[in-house]
Amino acid sequence: MEEWGYPPASDVSCTVALLVAELASNAVRHGRVPGRGFRLRMACATATRTIRIEVSDAREDRLPAFPAAPTADDEAGRGLVLVDLLATRWGTAPRVPVGKTVWAECGAP
C-alpha cells in the first residue's frame, strides 16, 4: 500500500487491511479444499484511485451471499457485513479452471 502512496496508518490502508483479512479468512474457513490454499491479488487503478482485492479459492460450490444482519448473540456472520460496509462494491466471479474469486474494491480520496 505504501508503494501506491498510502501510508500504513492511513484510512485507506486500514480499510484495505480489514477487507483482506475478512476475504482471506472466509477463503480459509469456507473455501478450503484439502491440499489447496487460496490466492490473494491486489491492484491499484491509478486513474480512478481504486484498490481491488481478489481472493481466490478452489471451492466453486460455496458462493458468498449478501449478508443477513447477525443478532447480538451470533458469534460469527459479521465478515461479509463488514465487507459490504467498507467496500465501494464487491462480488464474486468464477475462477478458471476451478473455484471462485471473491473481490472487493475501495476508492481512495
Rank of each mutant, 00 (worst) to 15 (best):
N26T: 13
T92M: 09
P8F: 06
H30N: 12
P70R: 10
V33G: 01
F38P: 01
R39F: 02
T46D: 15
P97G: 07
G107H: 11
S56Q: 11
V55C: 06
P7E: 09
T71H: 12
A9P: 00
A24K: 05
A104R: 05
T50E: 14
G31A: 09
D11C: 00
F66H: 13
G5A: 02
P109C: 01
V98T: 08
W90G: 03
P7Q: 04
V28F: 14
V16L: 06
G79A: 14
T92A: 08
G91V: 02
R59M: 13
Y6C: 02
R95D: 13
L82W: 09
G35N: 01
P94T: 03
K100S: 12
T48M: 09
R36F: 11
G5D: 03
P34E: 10
G79Q: 11
L82V: 08
R32T: 10
A45Y: 10
E54G: 01
V28R: 13
A43T: 10
G79M: 11
R49T: 02
T92C: 10
A108V: 03
G35Q: 02
C44I: 00
R41N: 12
D73V: 00
T71A: 15
R29K: 15
R49H: 06
M1H: 06
V81C: 15
I53W: 07
R39K: 05
L86D: 03
E2F: 00
T48Y: 06
A108T: 05
S10V: 01
A9N: 07
E3Q: 01
T15W: 04
V20L: 12
A17F: 05
T50F: 05
K100M: 15
V20A: 09
G99L: 10
R59Y: 11
R39V: 10
R32Q: 14
V12G: 01
A65W: 06
F66W: 14
W4N: 01
W90I: 02
R32A: 15
C44F: 15
P70K: 08
